[in-house]
Design a protein around this nucleic acid. Sequence first.
RNA 1: GGCCCCAUCGUCUAACGGCUAGGACAGCUGGUUCUCAUCCAGCAAAUCGGAGUUCGAUUCUCCGUGGGGUCACCA
Length: 443
Amino acid sequence: MAPSPTGHLHVGTARTALYNYLFAKRYGGTFILRSEDTDPERSERVYEDEIIEGLNWLGITWDAFYRQSERAGLYRTYLEGAIQKGTAYVSEEESKKDAGKTVQVVRLRNPNTTVTFDDEIRGEITFDTTELGDFVIARSLDDALYHFTVVVDDHEMGVTHVIRGEDHISNTPRQILIQEAIGAERPIYAHLPLLLGADRSKLSKRNGTVQLSSYRDAGYLKSALVNYLALLGWNPGTDEEIFTLAELERIFDLGGVQKGGAIFDIEKLKWINKAHLKQVDNTTFYDTTLERITERVRALPQYSEERFAKLVPLIRERVSVAGEITELANSGEYDFAFAEPSYNPTLIKWKDDETPLETLPRLQKIAEIIAVVPEGATSEEIKSRIWDYAVEVGKGQVLWPLRVVLTGKDKSPDPFTVISIIGSSEAYRRVRNACDTILSMRD
RNA sequence: GGCCCCAUCGUCUAACGGCUAGGACAGCUGGUUCUCAUCCAGCAAAUCGGAGUUCGAUUCUCCGUGGGGUCACCA
C-alpha cells in the first residue's frame, strides 16, 4: 500500500489499504506501507502521521514501512543504470516549472510498443504506449518522479501484488515500460473499483464526506467502518453482512471484488454501525454516552448520575451512531429525564375533540395510583400498577396523556420506563402539576 | 476529444449458459402495549438497447448508448 501524504486520509485510501491488508493476511503475505512523498511541494509529514494513525485506528497493521524521500540515492543508481543501458536519457530543455530556466530532466526511451497486462480483477488490458512518448521519469538524477520510484521500490522490495484504485489503470503501461527499462519483473496487478459519490463520480469532498477522521469523529465504530468498507466492492459469496476484521482476514479474496464503482451509502454504514453497536458492552456504551451527551443536558436541574445511568439503555436502543447522541441531546430529546417538561396543554388530549377538562379526571386517577408506587420501582412494577386501569378506560386514553405530562413530547419512550427513570415522586409531581395547569386554565 | 475501464431493483450485491432473477439497506403496509424506538411479517422495486452464437443468454461475441477514470518536470 503506497499512499502519498498530500492530504487527509481518504476513506478510499483506507479501503485500498484494507484490501491490501486483508489479502496479505489471507495468503500469509507481507504488507508494506510506503509513503510516496517524492513531491516536496505537496507532501507534508502531518498527513503521513494522519495516514498512519488512521490505519492503525482501523486495526490495519503493516510488516514494513518505507518513506520514498529517504531513498533518493537508490533511485539515482537505477536512473544511472538505465541511462547507461540507453533505456533512458538526459534531456536538456526549458523548465516547465520556471519558464526561461534550462534544466536536465531524465526521459524514458519509449520503445513504442503495445503493452498488455493481466489484471486480477479485469482480465487483459491492452495499451498502445506510442502516445506516451518519451515521458519524463526524473526532474534530475536526484529527483526521481512517481512512476520511476514506484517501479524501483516494487522491484527492490519484492512486491508481488499491486492492489490499487482503478484510477491507476492508465498509469500501469508507463510503469511496465519502466520495469522493462530497468530489468524489473512485473508484479500482479489488481485494480479496484472506485468509491463513488451520490453523483456517481469519484468520491471527493465535492460530493461527500471523504476524511476517515470525520467518520471517527461522528462516532462510527472502527469495526463498522472496516466491515462496510470491505463490503463496498467486494462480496463474501454468502448472505452474511456483518463481519469483524479477524473474520475478514480469513475469508477475503480478490475473486469477490467487483468491477464497477460503488456509491458510498451512508445509510447502509449506519445500519452496519448499529449492528456493531449491539456487540459493544454496556460499560463502554455508558462511557461513550457520557462523552457524547452535552453540557447543557448535564446542567439541567434534576441531572444526576443515577438518572443518567437509567437513561443510557434507552438511548442505546434508539441510536445507530454515537454522534446522534449529541444531536438528540442538543435538540432536547433527553431533557424529560432531568427537568420538568414544558409543553402545550392541548397536546394532552387523546382525541381531537377532547378538551383538557375531560382528560383531567383520568390524570387525577393516575396521580392517585402513582402516589403509592415505591420510589425505586422498576418499569414492570409500575406497569402492573397502572395497566388494569389503562385497559379498563382505554389504553390510549390513559397512556397518551400520562406520557405527555411526563415528557412534554408527542414521541417518547413509554410512560412506565419514564417513571422508572425519574422516580415515582417526581412523576407524581409532574402529573399533579398538569392537573393544576388544567384547572387554572378553566378560570 | 484520444486512450482505458465499467453496466442486475433508488443503493450495495447474488445467480456451473437452464426454477416465479435471490439477499441486504433505504421506502411503504401491517402486527408486537398509546406515541417513538426495537423486533416480526408482508409489499413494491432491476438484468441499458440492438444484432449474433445456442434448444435456451443476466451470463458468451459484436455494435450502439450511457456512466466513470485518465491524459504533469503531481501522486
